[in-house]
Design a protein around this nucleic acid. Structure first.
Lengths: 197, 197
DNA sequence: CCTGTTCTTGACCCTCCGGTCAAGTGATGC
DNA sequence: GCATCACTTGACCGGAGGGTCAAGAACAGG
């Protein structure tokens, strides 16, 4: 149930369930992962699941929300008080890729959430926050004259597209080093194909 | 069943089923869309479905394969015999976005296919073909000195990331004009944030 | 100890779903 | 008109999966 009073023991169980389930979801997707599978994998009875979560859906949403929140926290922390907006964008890209590399299963969770009608609203909400963060830096960079004057929203989504796709392809599927991928992502976002680097 | 002998009437039914199912899949996803729902929506008995397809999974794969094939056909056709590799990349982006705008439901199908473990291999295969097409132009562009010398595979995935994400955000969710989005996608891919356009 | 609360169990329920099949119907060709 | 093949029907099956619940175990606090 939502907001149940939990002891330390309870909070630990809840954590275990969320972590374990997140990995199963990442491997199989939401629908193919059954509650029975989750509780069996943890070696507990089914009642445990429904003691901590109202439904499978709620559990997924909790995992999603927490992951989004955590990613944003890491991004914000990476920015520090960097004054240069272009550099802030770069730092955000780097922080995101590093975090995603360390939490690949949560990247998968994002993918599923984005695809599934049931979760896309929640996904969108988090995405909008991220867009809001980046778009602010882009606007500032345009004002400062460092970036050419084009629709900042387009630029932001282009940056996120590059970041996500490079993460998926090179970090996930090929297992490349996050730092290196980050270098290339930043390079492309700043200069495109033709720029002189 | 696979490769059954079909009359014209049969081929029409098959088309109808694929089109209708593609829209349902796009709206609800693969798992939540039941066979019963599909045949009810078409006003036919369940046997019709299994006369034309061995399973729900096969149907989905057929839809996916056909969509990938069609998209590629349109891309290739758009290139014509354009000699400039950079211009070829641009034409490919434009053709893709135009086609995606006209077949939004198939874009959704791609999203689901990419997320679902069951279909990601098929999805990957099509993706690899697309990557192969683009990477050839990028390499050629580098040789010709028009594009800076960086890993062509990275550039290709960056381009595809921009294209996909802008399509999803602006064409899909906001319903913007494909041509205009294409202009911006091309602009970003060529010059990034800092380039002078 | 005793009592109330937190947590755990696992059998059970019910619905839904992918897939089958025997029995038709409608064309097509001879 | 008859045989054949292409197609259609819809009741039915087996099983899986989300969720419930009555009964208990573990752990407070007094």
């Amino acid at each position: 149930m939502t907001s149940r009073r939990l002891t330390q023991r309870g909070r630990d169980r809840r954590r275990q369930l969320m972590d374990f389930a997140a990995h199963r979801f990442a491997d199989n997707g939401f629908h193919p992962t059954s509650v029975a599978e989750i509780v069996q994998g943890m070696g507990v009875g089914k009642g445990v699941f429904y003691w901590y979560f109202a439904s499978k859906e709620e559990l997924f949403l909790e995992i999603l929300k927490e992951a989004q929140h955590e990613l944003r926290r890491v991004q914000q922390q990476a920015l520090g008080d960097e004054p240069d907006p272009v550099r802030r964008i770069e730092l955000g890209i780097r922080a995101s890729l590093t975090w995603l590399a360390e939490h690949r299963h949560l990247f998968s969770v994002f993918q599923f959430a984005a695809a599934d009608e049931r979760f896309s609203p929640a996904m969108r909400r988090g995405q909008d926050v991220a867009v809001g963060d980046v778009v602010r830096h882009v606007k500032e960079a345009i004002v400062s004259g460092r970036v050419r004057d084009t629709d900042p929203l387009v630029m932001t989504h282009a940056i996120l597209g590059v970041t996500n796709n490079l993460a998926r392809t090179f970090i996930f599927e090929r297992g490349d080093d996050a730092e290196q991928v980050a270098d290339e992502a930043v390079e492309f976002c700043l200069h495109g194909l033709l720029g002189l680097g």
